[in-house]
């Protein structure tokens, strides 16, 4: 792999573009606790980027920084070549960043379809009164958005539960619905927080296939946190390894696998 500023070609022949998002010297503190210590890395257009590390390494905090939920005390977030000011999460969403959550955060009483429709909210312009009347523009808008949502439902193979309330679904399917909602926003960058946590082997295989298909079909850039090493090494193009808030490795799965610091972090070596 030769990396240039224009991008690189992966082992399986995919073209990866330039830098989409860059984290520059991020430090995040909660009171006296430093969750992230001076971390820099970039995410390139079209790639699948994994963030891994032992429990408490600061992975989820990192994802929350990207999604605008946490504001780092130091460092800069660059998106699309410009520095991002401190933003509210909804503003970040409007910029084209969507995410799923480690603990599922769906509207339990609503149907799958309606849950996925909420993912389209950032793309809707009519107000509540217009939607209540459901006439003219509001109707047109809903039809357009429904079409996009139906394509995603088809893509993720959840047609049979379209009208089922989310609360009645098993865990694995809820995860898929969450992915569907994130996709409905047609994000440029998709953040997945432990998409396979608590799944059995078959469900993991399904989810991996969906993640690869999403990347392939829509060209979506994906940043994911995952514990399952097998999954991470198979899926991702490049991996950032964190431990105790520090970056201890960054590179292709093979490079990371052979990195002594990473091996130490996972097998356990006394920290100073």
């Amino acid at each position: 792999m030769t990396e240039t500023s224009e991008g690189y070609t992966t082992a399986d022949g995919r073209q990866i573009g330039g830098v989409l998002m860059e984290m520059k010297n991020i430090t995040l503190r909660f009171g006296g606790v430093t969750a992230i210590k001076d971390i820099s890395f970039d995410i390139r257009e079209g790639e699948i980027r994994a963030i891994i590390g032992p429990n408490g390494a600061g992975k989820s905090s990192m994802l929350n920084v990207i999604s605008g939920f946490y504001h780092p005390q130091e460092g800069e977030v660059w998106f699309h070549g410009s520095k991002r000011p401190a933003m509210k999460p909804y503003q970040v969403a409007q910029q084209g960043i969507a995410r799923t959550f480690q603990n599922i955060a769906l509207f339990e009483g609503m149907s799958v379809l309606n849950n996925v429709m909420t993912g389209r909210l950032t793309h809707m312009t009519t107000n509540m009164a217009q939607q209540a009347m459901w006439w003219g523009k509001a109707e047109r808008e809903e039809v357009e958005n429904r079409e996009i949502v139906e394509k995603i439902i088809d893509f993720l193979e959840i047609q049979h539960i379209r009208k089922t309330p989310v609360s009645r679904l098993p865990y694995g399917l809820k995860k898929r619905v969450e992915l569907a909602r994130a996709l409905a926003a047609e994000p440029k960058l998709l953040l997945l927080d432990e998409p396979m946590a608590g799944m059995n082997v078959e469900e993991k295989e399904d989810m991996s296939r969906f993640i690869l298909d999403v990347n392939d079909e829509f060209g979506t850039t994906i940043a994911l946190i995952e514990h399952d090493m097998g999954v991470v090494m198979d899926l991702s193009d490049r991996v950032v390894v964190m431990d105790y808030g520090k970056k201890i490795g960054d590179g292709t799965p093979d490079e990371v696998r052979n990195n002594q610091d990473v091996i130490d972090a996972y097998l356990g070596v006394a920290h100073d």
Binding site: L113, R146, E147, E150, I153, D154, R162
Partner: peptide, 10 residues
């Protein structure tokens, strides 16, 4: 109508 198929919910 000769053929129908349900696709994209319709």
């Amino acid at each position: 109508a000769a053929y129908r198929e349900k696709e994209f919910g319709i």
